[in-house]
Design a protein around this nucleic acid. Structure first.
Lengths: 154, 154
DNA sequence: CGCAACCTTGCCGTTTACGTGAAAGTACGG
DNA sequence: CCGTACTTTCACGTAAACGGCAAGGTTGCG
């Protein structure tokens, strides 16, 4: 029975498996839930948290923002809220057939994406400035090394 | 007396002035010192901390790494240590006249710069990936909006 | 059905990066 | 010389983001 995993909504993972999948601890995952960043797709009979692939994706996203980008959980919450808002717009989009309304919804979604991109870009920009400065010094050093070839030094 | 600020090593700021200059609190500045990130250029007669322009620059750098890049003070300490190592190399460089030795020192400095650039680039790369993903979705939305013009929709 | 391994909630502990006084000294315009 | 504003060190308090443990319930293989 249930051998044909055809319609199967994929596999559900328990907290440890889900956490390990993305390199987090179960404790962190529970904390994120407490913080309101996600909710497990389901609970088992005995109230075990069960995560699906979407949840794991979300955890990966959260970890990326934290570890790679250095965002605080509060900032991540903001970004995820934007995401949620887009999904609500998506629902609203399909709830209407009025072209004008649909266009308005799409433009709002667009604005949301652009805000997120802006946030990330700002961060990149500042990092890039630091890279540029370091590279300038590096170039200076490279030039000095090259000078040894042409036999001239200060 | 000392009216001609000619040779003057510029102006020395007290902690509040220096902190305000870069948007920090005196407490943070003292904490950074305690943490080993910097030391005031001098102390007044009555043991007041006195900061010069170099110190302020350093504070700006630290704040940038923290606020913009999201580095921890420990990571910043690492980057500053690299910087210090480069300065020691600089001193060693001028201490010798042996061209071979000088070249070796320059190459070491170069490696140090490149490590730092690598660290920053890794962070940028991850942020860029997130931007790309968001832009892809944005593009999708843009396309949808454009479709309204040509009167076709899914 | 037994039991090892995993999970639950609850709660206290810890690290990081400061905030916030307290008590005493310093700088300096009037 | 005095008062006020700023500074010093010391010490305790705090928010964020978990770590870790206790007491008890759940899964699931044998």
């Amino acid at each position: 029975m249930t051998e044909t995993k055809e319609l199967g909504a994929a596999r559900l993972l328990r907290i440890q498996e889900a956490a390990a999948e993305v390199g987090l601890t179960p404790r962190s995952v529970r904390y994120y839930e407490e913080f309101g960043l996600l909710r497990p797709a389901a609970r088992s009979e005995g109230d075990y948290r069960l995560y699906d692939e979407t949840d794991v994706e979300r955890l990966r996203f959260i970890k990326g923002l934290r570890d790679d980008a250095g965002f605080s959980l509060a900032e991540i919450a903001q970004l995820l809220e934007d995401e949620a808002a887009r999904e609500r717009l998506h629902a609203a989009y399909h709830a209407t057939t009025d072209p004008t309304e649909r266009q308005r919804i799409l433009r709002e979604r667009l604005a949301s994406y652009e805000r997120q991109i802006e946030t990330l870009r700002r961060k990149i920009g500042r990092l890039q400035t630091m890279v540029d400065e370091t590279e300038a010094r590096r170039a200076h050093t490279v030039a000095k090394i090259a000078d040894f070839g042409s036999g001239e030094q200060l």
